[in-house]
């Protein structure tokens, strides 16, 4: 009982500390940076959060909490991490990360850059592969709840596209359908192209 009371007291203190988050003053941000990096540029399996659309990040955090996003690493790491997030905290974290200046991963295959760019910009109409640009924007900057893709790491982009084709994160229409029309070569080309997009249009 005593323990519960003190927990409630702590929660009350945390909740009252609302307002813009700063990395050095927020334990919650520090919990993210263990995996996503101090400047949130991503590390290993954890994607870059810096410069990501806040509405997208917020949506995804709630998706982890509600187990809608069920990719293997999501299950392993993010379900637990997001389990106790309040909607307000999810929102504050998403806004905070969206303001950090992002860097491009530049870790794709440069040989595939041109092929990836063509698929991104106009798709392959003969094979019923749609253009990515119409939703994700001319510089892959994203908009509203549609994520920025430019500069994310090759391995992350490749894995997400593959996993949609394998049935993970099925609720994220229309991506499961789109990803399942892509061949392994086309996925590699797209992931490569996107990894090199600089944040020239960072706004």
């Amino acid at each position: 009982m005593k323990l519960i009371t003190s927990k409630i007291a702590i929660l009350a203190i945390v909740a009252s500390a609302a307002g813009p988050l700063l990395a050095d003053e927020s334990v919650r941000v520090r919990n993210c940076t263990w995996c996503h990096g101090i400047s949130a540029q991503g590390f290993s399996t954890a994607p870059r959060l810096a410069g990501q659309r806040d509405e997208y990040t917020e949506n995804q955090l709630l998706g982890f909490k509600e187990h809608i996003r069920d990719n293997p690493y999501s299950k392993q790491y993010m379900w637990g991490a997001a389990a106790n997030l309040s909607p307000q905290t999810a929102h504050d974290l998403a806004v905070y990360f969206s303001t950090l200046p992002p860097e491009a991963a530049n870790d794709g295959d440069r040989e595939l850059l041109a092929a990836g760019r063509t698929i991104y910009e106009v798709g392959i109409p003969e094979s019923n592969i749609v253009s990515c640009l119409v939703c994700h924007g001319p510089n892959a900057e994203g908009v509203r709840e549609i994520p920025r893709l430019g500069g994310l790491s090759y391995s992350y982009l490749k894995r997400r596209l593959e996993q949609w084709g394998e049935g993970f994160h099925a609720a994220a229409e229309p991506m499961p359908r789109i990803a399942s029309t892509l061949s392994p070569n086309e996925i590699e080309a797209l992931a490569s192209y996107l990894s090199f997009i600089e944040y020239a249009s960072f706004e």
């Binding site: 019923n128 749609v130 253009s131 640009l133 119409v134 939703c135 908009v143 359908r177 789109i178």
Partner: peptide
């Protein structure tokens, strides 16, 4: 059917339109 699925990916599953970066 394949071409319809292709159109509907951007123009909406019931052809109702879709708001991406550009409005479809």
């Amino acid at each position: 059917q394949a071409k319809l699925d292709y159109c509907k990916t951007c123009h909406g599953l019931s052809g109702q339109g879709y708001r991406g970066y550009y409005p479809m």
